[in-house]
Every structure is written in C-alpha cells, then in structure tokens.
Amino acid sequence: MRETAERWGFRGLYPVEAASEYVGGMGLLVYEVLRCLSKRWEGRLILDQMEHIGVRSLSIVTLTAVFTGMVLALQMGNYLARFGAKPYVGRILAVSMLREMGPVLTALMIGGRVGAGITAEIGSMKVTEQIDALRSLGVNPIQKLVLPRLIALLVMLPLLTVLADLVAVLGGLFIGVTELSVSADFYLNSIVQFVKFQDLFSGLGKTFFFAFFIAMIACYNGLEATGGADGVGRATTKTVVTASITILVSDFFLTKLFLSL
C-alpha cells in the first residue's frame, strides 16, 4: 500500500496521512493569503496576471463554449422535437449554460490551462531556489506570487464565464436557425422571457469558489514542488487532477447551496 502511495506522489506516507498533510498545508497557505490581503496589493502584477489568465484564455474558452452550445442545441433540438417542443431549445440551452455548463466548463478549461501554468511556473521557481531567493531578499512570496494570481482569477473567471455563456447561446442560435428551423427572434425572445437573474447569479456565484480553488491548489502544488523537472511535472499533473475533481465535486454542493437561497 505504501509503495502505491509513493508511486502516486505521496512521498512515503499513507494516503490518509498525505491527505491530512495536504489539507493542513493548504489551510496554512489560505491563512497566509488572508493575512496578505490587508497588505499592499501589487497592481502591476495583478494586471499582468489578469492579462495572462484572462486575455490569453479567450480563444480556448470561446472555442469550447461555441461548440458546447452547438452540440447542446443539436442534441436538445432533436430530443425536444419528439414532444413538439423544438422551438424552446433556446431557453433550455441558456439555463443549462448559465447555471451549470458555463461555469463548470470554463473552470475546467482554466483549471487545466492556467492552473497547470501557475504550478509549473511557481514549481520551477521553487526547485531553482528562486522562492528562497525572494525570501532571502526580504520579499514575501505569498504576496508577490500567490495573491496576484488569486485576485486575477477571482476577477477573470466570472468574466470568462459570462463570455462563455454568451458564445454558447450564440452557437445554439446558429444551430437553431440552420438545423432546427427555429427563428432567431423566437430563440432570443424565449431566452429573454424565461431566463431569470437567479440563473445568472447561481452560475456566476460558483465561479468565485472555483477561482479560489484553482488558485490555491495551483499555487500550493507549485510551492510544494521538489526534485527538479520531474517534481515540477508531477506537481503540474497533480494540479490538473485535483483542481478538476474539486471543481466537479464542489459544483454539486454549490448547486445545492444556491438552489436553497
């Protein structure tokens, strides 16, 4: 069992011990980040990260969203046609995207692209002693590295999600018009009439939690990376897996939470 644990990167500890260590370490990081919130915010670093996390993710998020919207419209349109409800494909698609698919898909894409990048960058700095160099120069690495990435993710993930929602609805519109013979006016009007503010709020509310999870997991794994390039590679994989699982599992509980509000 120990061998299996070691192979999975738990450094000679049993999974329960490793999980406790991981959760404990993460708790300490969150505590440090909260302490740094009251200190000077590095505006330039935050803007750099917003550009890196947000602007450079536009293409991947747009591409994912447009095809998701098109596929959903195709599937739903054909299914709804059995009940003669094909014209209502827009409203079902919009609610699915706003409440679930938009936030979760965007978070998964950002967790993969940005989370992996953050871990690789911070992990490389860790194994080449650049983090220690920062500390030895009297600079707090949490304030310089973790906080700007967290803030940038908290700002950019909701915005990217809104973009993904919009693009997916437009992708659905394209399929609705070209494949399902639904008029553009009807498609859009049915969305405007049916979709409520709570649908948008419920989806966007989740993105703040997802952004927090991605930033913390990615930064923590980077800061804990050891053992050179191999260690950075393992840390990066761990981030993608942990962030994806955390997003999917927390989505269930967040959905329950937002439905009860």
Binding site: T128, E129, Q130, D132, A133, R135, S136, G138
Partner: peptide, 17 residues
C-alpha cells in the same frame, strides 16, 4: 530586516529568469 542585513548567494544562483 535580518535578511536585508544578511544576504545570500545561492548554489544555483537563483536569479529571477
């Protein structure tokens, strides 16, 4: 304050790349 007065040169240099 301590680190401002006692600086360190690392084995791998640790320059910010």
């Amino acid at each position: 304050e301590v680190r401002k007065r006692v600086a360190m040169v690392f084995q791998g240099c640790a320059l910010f790349d």
